[in-house]
Amino acid sequence: KIDYYSTDGDLVKSYLTETIELPAMATLNYIVEKEEDKGGSGAKFIIEVEGVDETVKPVIEAVMIGNFSNKGFAFSTQGTPVL
């Protein structure tokens, strides 16, 4: 599951409607458009994954890029497990 939540904790969008299987070393990309403002400044994703066993540890990372006038910016952040 890949769910996108607003600053207030409200579900904005569910990105998956059915289970998918990724092969080893595969990648998924999801884009939140620049004009999207429903998430607010504290928007977040909750991602649920299942592996063959407990040794499977996915790498989950978000990348933000943008620009204002002639200035550009970019940053990335790693996902944090929520138990």
Rank of each mutant, 00 (worst) to 15 (best):
S14I: 03
K34Y: 02
L11Y: 12
I60M: 12
E36R: 10
S14H: 06
I31C: 06
V12C: 08
D8H: 00
D53E: 00
P23E: 10
K71D: 05
L83Y: 05
M64C: 09
T80L: 07
F75Y: 06
S6P: 01
F45K: 10
A43I: 11
M25V: 12
E33N: 12
S14M: 08
D10L: 15
G66L: 07
D8F: 01
G9Y: 08
E61P: 03
F68G: 10
Y4P: 03
E61H: 07
D8T: 11
G42L: 13
Y15D: 07
K1F: 09
K1R: 14
D53H: 00
G39Y: 04
V82R: 08
T55N: 06
L11M: 07
K71E: 15
S14C: 04
T17G: 09
L28Q: 13
I65G: 01
E54A: 13
E48P: 00
E35L: 04
Y5F: 15
K44T: 14
V59M: 05
E36I: 14
E48C: 04
M64P: 00
A74C: 10
I65F: 03
N70C: 01
D37W: 06
S41K: 11
V49Q: 00
Y30R: 02
M64V: 15
K71L: 10
M64I: 08
E33A: 14
K44H: 15
I31N: 04
V49I: 03
A62N: 02
K44I: 07
D37A: 03
A26V: 04
K38H: 04
